[in-house]
Protein backbone atom coordinates (compact mmCIF):
# COMPACT_ATOMS: atom_id res chain seq x y z
CA UNK A 1 0.00 0.00 0.00
CA UNK A 2 1.00 3.63 -0.43
CA UNK A 3 1.46 5.98 2.51
CA UNK A 4 2.33 9.63 2.49
CA UNK A 5 4.43 10.35 5.57
CA UNK A 6 5.98 13.71 6.39
CA UNK A 7 5.68 14.78 2.78
CA UNK A 8 7.22 11.65 1.30
CA UNK A 9 5.47 8.85 -0.50
CA UNK A 10 6.23 5.30 0.64
CA UNK A 11 5.22 1.93 -0.74
CA UNK A 12 4.93 -0.62 2.05
CA UNK A 13 4.06 -4.30 1.95
CA UNK A 14 2.18 -4.88 5.20
CA UNK A 15 -1.03 -6.44 6.43
CA UNK A 16 -4.05 -4.11 6.30
CA UNK A 17 -4.53 -4.50 10.03
CA UNK A 18 -0.96 -3.66 11.04
CA UNK A 19 -1.20 -0.60 13.30
CA UNK A 20 0.20 2.51 11.64
CA UNK A 21 2.56 2.85 14.64
CA UNK A 22 4.48 -0.27 13.66
CA UNK A 23 4.56 0.62 10.00
CA UNK A 24 6.15 3.93 10.92
CA UNK A 25 8.60 2.54 13.46
CA UNK A 26 9.63 -0.83 12.07
CA UNK A 27 9.01 -0.52 8.33
CA UNK A 28 9.93 3.16 7.78
CA UNK A 29 12.32 3.69 10.70
CA UNK A 30 10.51 6.79 12.03
CA UNK A 31 11.25 6.31 15.72
CA UNK A 32 10.13 9.75 16.90
CA UNK A 33 6.70 8.09 17.11
CA UNK A 34 6.58 6.14 20.36
CA UNK A 35 5.05 2.89 21.52
CA UNK A 36 3.61 3.29 25.01
CA UNK A 37 0.55 1.15 25.65
CA UNK A 38 -0.77 -0.25 22.37
CA UNK A 39 -4.41 0.39 23.38
CA UNK A 40 -4.85 4.16 22.92
CA UNK A 41 -4.52 4.86 26.64
CA UNK A 42 -1.31 6.90 26.71
CA UNK A 43 -1.10 8.97 23.52
CA UNK A 44 2.65 8.47 23.01
CA UNK A 45 1.99 7.24 19.44
CA UNK A 46 -0.03 10.30 18.37
CA UNK A 47 0.42 11.42 14.75
CA UNK A 48 -1.68 13.57 12.45
CA UNK A 49 -3.73 12.40 9.51
CA UNK A 50 -4.57 15.49 7.48
CA UNK A 51 -3.71 17.62 10.50
CA UNK A 52 -5.93 15.79 12.98
CA UNK A 53 -4.44 13.86 15.90
CA UNK A 54 -4.94 10.09 15.87
CA UNK A 55 -3.52 7.28 17.98
CA UNK A 56 -1.35 5.40 15.51
CA UNK A 57 -1.38 2.25 17.68
CA UNK A 58 -5.12 1.92 17.04
CA UNK A 59 -5.14 3.07 13.42
CA UNK A 60 -4.93 0.21 10.96
CA UNK A 61 -2.53 0.95 8.12
CA UNK A 62 -5.19 -0.09 5.62
CA UNK A 63 -7.61 2.52 6.97
CA UNK A 64 -5.29 5.49 6.49
CA UNK A 65 -6.79 7.79 3.86
CA UNK A 66 -4.80 10.99 4.21
CA UNK A 67 -1.39 12.55 4.64
CA UNK A 68 0.43 11.43 7.78
CA UNK A 69 2.52 13.86 9.78
CA UNK A 70 4.79 12.63 12.59
CA UNK A 71 6.74 14.61 15.17
CA UNK A 72 9.71 14.41 12.79
CA UNK A 73 7.71 16.05 10.02
CA UNK A 74 6.00 18.67 12.19
CA UNK A 75 9.28 20.50 12.59
CA UNK A 76 12.98 19.87 13.03
CA UNK A 77 15.65 21.24 15.38
CA UNK A 78 16.57 23.71 12.64
CA UNK A 79 12.98 24.56 11.66
CA UNK A 80 10.81 24.26 14.73
CA UNK A 81 7.01 24.23 14.72
CA UNK A 82 5.55 26.82 17.10
CA UNK A 83 4.48 24.09 19.51
CA UNK A 84 7.96 22.54 19.58
CA UNK A 85 9.43 26.00 20.11
CA UNK A 86 7.13 26.55 23.09
CA UNK A 87 8.05 23.11 24.47
CA UNK A 88 11.73 24.14 24.36
CA UNK A 89 11.07 27.58 25.85
CA UNK A 90 9.26 26.01 28.79
CA UNK A 91 11.72 23.10 29.03
CA UNK A 92 8.77 20.76 29.35
CA UNK A 93 10.53 17.42 28.97
CA UNK A 94 11.87 15.25 31.73
CA UNK A 95 12.33 11.77 30.29
CA UNK A 96 10.67 13.13 27.16
CA UNK A 97 9.21 9.82 26.00
CA UNK A 98 5.60 11.07 25.96
CA UNK A 99 6.43 14.47 24.51
CA UNK A 100 6.23 13.51 20.83
CA UNK A 101 2.62 12.57 21.42
CA UNK A 102 1.93 15.57 23.66
CA UNK A 103 3.27 17.96 21.02
CA UNK A 104 1.28 16.31 18.22
CA UNK A 105 -1.88 16.46 20.34
CA UNK A 106 -1.28 20.13 21.16
CA UNK A 107 -0.54 20.99 17.52
CA UNK A 108 -3.80 19.33 16.49
CA UNK A 109 -5.74 21.25 19.14
CA UNK A 110 -4.22 24.56 18.07
CA UNK A 111 -4.90 23.73 14.43
CA UNK A 112 -8.60 23.70 15.23
CA UNK A 113 -8.72 26.28 18.00
CA UNK A 114 -6.04 28.94 18.26
CA UNK A 115 -7.36 30.33 21.55
CA UNK A 116 -8.29 27.35 23.73
CA UNK A 117 -9.52 27.97 27.26
CA UNK A 118 -7.90 26.22 30.23
CA UNK A 119 -10.76 23.73 30.23
CA UNK A 120 -10.36 23.07 26.51
CA UNK A 121 -6.63 22.49 26.93
CA UNK A 122 -7.26 20.06 29.79
CA UNK A 123 -9.85 18.19 27.78
CA UNK A 124 -7.76 17.95 24.63
CA UNK A 125 -4.59 16.88 26.44
CA UNK A 126 -6.14 14.55 29.02
CA UNK A 127 -5.60 11.41 26.96
CA UNK A 128 -1.85 11.95 26.81
CA UNK A 129 -0.22 10.34 29.83
CA UNK A 130 3.00 11.75 31.28
CA UNK A 131 4.54 9.55 33.93
CA UNK A 132 7.14 12.18 34.92
CA UNK A 133 4.41 14.72 35.70
CA UNK A 134 5.20 17.59 33.33
CA UNK A 135 1.54 18.62 33.11
CA UNK A 136 1.93 22.17 34.51
CA UNK A 137 4.60 22.92 31.89
CA UNK A 138 2.48 21.33 29.16
CA UNK A 139 -0.38 23.68 30.04
CA UNK A 140 1.94 26.68 29.99
CA UNK A 141 3.60 25.65 26.71
CA UNK A 142 0.26 25.17 24.96
CA UNK A 143 -0.70 28.73 25.93
CA UNK A 144 2.62 30.12 24.73
CA UNK A 145 2.25 28.29 21.42
CA UNK A 146 -1.32 29.54 21.07
CA UNK A 147 -0.23 33.13 21.63
CA UNK A 148 2.53 32.74 19.07
CA UNK A 149 0.21 31.21 16.48
CA UNK A 150 -2.33 33.99 17.02
CA UNK A 151 0.38 36.56 16.43
CA UNK A 152 1.58 34.79 13.29
Amino acid sequence: MKLNVDGKSHEVDVEDDMPLLWVLRDELGITGVKYGCGIAQCGACTVHIDGVAVRSCQTAAGDVDGAITTIEGLGTPDALHAVQDAWITHQVAQCGYCQSGQIMQAASLLGENTAPTDAEIDEAMDGNLCRCGTYPRIRAAVKTAAAKLQGA
Binding site: V33, T70, I88, V92, A93, I103
Partner: peptide, 8 residues
Protein backbone atom coordinates in the same frame (compact mmCIF):
# COMPACT_ATOMS: atom_id res chain seq x y z
CA UNK B 1 15.45 19.49 25.56
CA UNK B 2 15.61 20.19 21.82
CA UNK B 3 15.94 16.51 20.95
CA UNK B 4 13.10 15.64 23.32
CA UNK B 5 10.87 18.28 21.70
CA UNK B 6 11.50 17.18 18.13
CA UNK B 7 11.32 13.40 18.29
CA UNK B 8 15.07 13.15 17.71
Amino acid sequence: VVAKSTGT
